[in-house]
Structure formats: structure tokens, C-alpha cells
């Protein structure tokens, strides 16, 4: 290797041909095959990258157009009349600051609740031997598998009249408490590891704790450390990367979740999340213009779509920021948990 590095370009060229001649043309064939393979791979890999990014880029370019550009068939991706009016309109329709704050608050609390309970449970499954352990772990798998649609109906009724085995009823005049319409039911579910994708976090965290060396805890026990203290002081600090990525997953998935938000945080109750706002955005825009120009006014659907896609883009900006900052953490902590079948 050092020999080839020291040579000039011409010498290297001649040396290559000499080696090629000695190997009966095999070297050249192999080099060419390698080159073609690299080109094909690059085209495929980066082409698919473009495919994934394209809708996002498209949204970005549309969001900077003025309304007139939308009807101009010569304008495809670069706006002719650059403007940020779509942004201000989308912000107004989303009631930006308030909605974003609510969404942030809810996602944050949900993520904290989910991670706290899932970490405890994951650690319990990873390190302790207790009867019926396999049975309970099968239940975790069941938790992952059951589609939320199956249980959402009873849950909906359940929380309108919430009561744990009639205990609350004793203090509340025989009737349960109406919990639906606030944060409480969903936070309760997350604390009970039954939130959105909780089973997955339990699985990942268990996998992580299983791979930690046992000697760590044994040393702590010998020194007279309690189980809880060992967990908090010895094992948790080491689990920071996987905890962070589970937390971010939970935050991000709650932020983009439509289904649970629709059930638990609908407009009628005053808890309006970004996703709730987005799903009614065009109708609100329509109503806004009707209130200005009278009932007969109809907004152009292209304009509606532009404002909607701008609003979607705005709601994704926090997520993209998080992802850019924590990208390495996401990908690597997931691939290092050593998932096994």
C-alpha cells in the first residue's frame, strides 16, 4: 500500500496495467464491475431518498408561493411571487401559539408518564425472576398486537363514567366521575402502560436492561444498596441514550397522533391539539372567509390546500428539529439494543 501511495499518477497507472496484464484482465473487469455497482447503488439509494423527501420539499416550495402562482402552470417548484402570506394565514387558522403550547404540554406529559412506567416495567421484566413471568410478558406482546379500535369503544364509555370497582362511587354518590374531555384518562392510561405503543417501549427497555452486566447490581447489593436505589442510581444513568430515544419517540408519536387525540381531546372540550386543528383547518378557513365576504363566498380549493400543507409543514417543524438534533441517538440506540427473535 505504501508503495502505491508514494508513486506519481503516471506510475500508478502503469503499475495498474501491469498487474492487470499479469492477472489476465481479471483486475480490470473487477474494477469496472465494482464501478458500475457503485453507480447503480448510488442512483438507487439517493433516488429513494429523494422519493421520501419529495412530498416534504414540495410542501416547502408551495408554502412560499402567492395564490396566483398556484394557478400558473409554468410555476412548478420555484415560486415566481415569493411570499410568506400562507404562513401567517396558517398560523392564524391554527391559532398558533395556543395550540402549539397545548400540544407540547400534552405530548410532554404523555411522554414522561409513558417512559416512567415503561422503564420500571421493562427493568422488572429484565432482571427479576417471579412466578408467571412468561405469562405477563405474553401480555405485553398482546398489548402491542391489539388494535386500539377494538378497545376504544368500551374505553370511551368507561371514561364517561369512571369508577374503579365502585370505589370512587362510594364517595361520589353512587356514580362515577366523568373524566372524558381532559388530560386525565390518557395520562392514566400511559401510567398504566396502556398508552399508544407502550408495549413497544417496554420491549425495547427490557432488551436494554437485559444486556447490562449483572455484576453492577450484585456489587451494589453486596454494599447494602436497596433494589430501588440500585435501579435509580446504578442502572438509570447508563440507560440515558435509550431512555432519551424512547422519550422522543413517545413525544413525537403523541404529537402526530390523530386517533387518540380525536377520541380523548376533541374540540368540544377545549383541549385542542395541533392534529385536531389540522383536520378541521380547511373548514375553518372557509368559515373565516365567509365571515368577511358573506355566506356566498367560496374559497378556492387550491388555496385551501396550500394553507393546509403550510400548516402541516409548520406542525412538522418542531419534529424535524428534534430529529436533526437527536438523529444519531434515535438510529443508534435502536440498533444497539440487540433485538433478538
Amino acid at each position: 500500500m505504501t508503495k502505491t501511495n508514494a508513486m506519481t499518477r503516471k506510475e500508478r497507472w502503469e503499475f495498474f496495467w501491469e498487474r492487470n496484464r499479469k492477472s489476465d484482465g481479471y483486475l480490470l473487469k473487477k474494477k469496472i464491475a465494482r464501478f458500475i455497482f457503485c453507480v447503480c447503488r448510488a442512483v438507487l439509494v439517493f433516488g429513494l431518498c429523494f422519493l421520501i423527501l419529495q412530498p416534504l420539499l414540495n410542501k416547502v416550495s408551495v408554502s412560499f408561493m402567492e395564490e396566483i402562482d398556484l394557478y400558473d402552470s409554468t410555476v412548478i417548484s420555484v415560486p415566481r411571487h415569493f411570499s410568506v402570506s400562507a404562513y401567517s394565514m396558517a398560523w392564524k387558522m391554527l391559532e398558533g401559539a395556543k395550540t402549539f403550547w397545548t400540544s407540547f404540554y400534552v405530548s410532554f406529559l404523555v411522554a414522561v408518564a409513558q417512559i416512567v412506567s415503561c422503564t420500571l416495567v421493562g427493568y422488572g421484566f429484565a432482571r427479576f425472576k417471579f412466578p408467571l413471568k412468561n405469562f405477563w410478558f405474553a401480555c405485553v406482546i398482546l398489548l402491542i398486537v391489539v388494535p386500539p379500535q377494538t378497545i376504544i369503544t368500551p374505553l370511551y364509555l368507561y371514561f364517561t363514567d369512571f369508577d374503579i370497582f365502585g370505589i370512587i362511587g362510594l364517595f361520589h354518590g353512587g356514580k362515577g366521575v366523568k373524566l372524558l374531555g381532559g388530560m386525565t384518562p390518557y395520562i392514566l392510561m400511559c401510567l398504566g402502560c396502556a398508552g399508544f405503543k407502550s408495549g413497544l417501549y417496554i420491549y425495547l427497555l427490557r432488551q436494554h436492561f437485559r444486556n447490562e452486566p449483572k455484576e453492577l447490581e450484585e456489587a451494589a447489593y453486596v454494599d447494602g444498596c436497596s433494589r430501588m436505589r440500585t435501579f435509580v442510581q446504578i442502572l438509570l444513568p447508563g440507560a440515558t441514550p435509550i431512555l432519551t430515544s424512547c422519550f422522543l419517540f413517545s413525544f413525537v408519536w403523541q404529537w402526530t397522533d390523530v386517533y387518540y387525540s380525536q377520541i380523548f381531546f376533541s374540540n368540544a372540550y377545549g383541549w385542542i391539539l395541533v392534529t385536531n386543528r389540522l383536520s378541521s383547518l380547511v373548514d375553518r378557513l372557509d368559515g373565516y372567509y365567509k365571515s368577511i365576504y358573506g355566506q356566498s363566498y367560496q374559497i378556492a380549493s387550491a388555496y385551501g390546500q396550500q394553507v393546509l400543507s403550510t400548516a402541516v409543514l409548520m406542525s412538522l417543524i418542531p419534529l424535524i428539529l428534534i430529529y436533526v438534533l437527536a438523529q444519531k441517538n434515535f438510529v443508534e440506540s435502536l440498533s444497539q439494543t440487540g433485538i433478538k427473535g
Binding site: S117, L120, V121, Y123, G124, F125, F128, W136, C139, V140, L142, L143, V146, I151, L155, I164, L188, M189, L191, G192, C193, A194, I202, F231
Partner: peptide, 14 residues
């Protein structure tokens, strides 16, 4: 004790 949140949640919400 460690998995109790899961057991309670599983029984109540699943």
C-alpha cells in the same frame, strides 16, 4: 412491584 404499573394498567385498560 416493578411490573405492577403494567399489571394494573393491563387489567384496567386492556
Amino acid at each position: 412491584l416493578f411490573i405492577s404499573p403494567f399489571i394494573i394498567g393491563f387489567l384496567l385498560f386492556m
